[in-house]
Design a protein around this nucleic acid. Sequence first.
DNA 1: TGTTGTCGGAGCCACAACGG
DNA 2: CCGTTGTGGCTCCGACAACA
Length: 263
Amino acid sequence: MNYIIFDLEFNQSYDSTKRRSIIKKASNKECPFEIIQIGAVKLDEKLELIDKMDRLIKPVIYPEVNPFVQELTGITTEMLKLAAPFYEIYNEFTEFLKSNRAILCVWGKADIKELFRNVKYHKLDLSLIPKEYINLQKHASKHLNCPKGTSIGLSNAVNLLNIPSKDEFHNAFMDAYYTAEIFRKIYNDSMKPKIYNINENRSSNKRNSRMPSIDTEGLFKQFEKMYNREITEEEKSMIKLSYMMGKTRQFQIEIPDNKPTIQ
DNA sequence: TGTTGTCGGAGCCACAACGG
DNA sequence: CCGTTGTGGCTCCGACAACA
């Protein structure tokens, strides 16, 4: 078994014309964040470092590095012009992942999510990514007694755990390295990997799957059609109330089931 | 039978914090 | 900058009990 601690740096859309109100460079919905750097370290079962990887990726969706991203990561458009394309680095990465059992370790869930999204965008083989993962940010936040609802940043966690650093954060390889150091410091047996579900996405699942509201107009129309006449306001309110009461099941009665149960 | 109050669960929303 | 995540507070609503 191996632990793969990885970190990504992304680029995103940027409108260099500055005329945002007139022209807004569309962020690609399929892939709003394009991976431009993968950094990873591999640990064995004893949490000893056995391999590492650090590669830049040539972007194709957003070829120009967003100044904000450049400022944050130090990665420039020039640097990426010489980098290899995604499919090539993904090949390398999946080779790097090969193990009888690889568990991904990430700092926050964003990286794992964007990795899946980028691989999907490039129509590459998603099944090569292990499904087991540990979100170390969550464990570290708990370990360091962060107040409920807050999660600790990587540099704060490194400082609080007295891990020697030279402030080289927001570099994929260094972030992966620091995350691995944190993992070694806070590791305990109760840190069980979870299975990543590619479909778990708040905005598309939870937030849009509200309880359906009642199409009252459609309901009344149906009654008018069935009775071939207009429905009065009083009837409307009765129909609506009955519909709601039906949902509560408060007048539903149990019918005894005499069938023998089969074990 | 109808009204009122309480309780708990679910959904919604704004916000903070973090990610690049 | 833009996007995501988790939380607390709020409201709504069903379930239920108590009461007239």
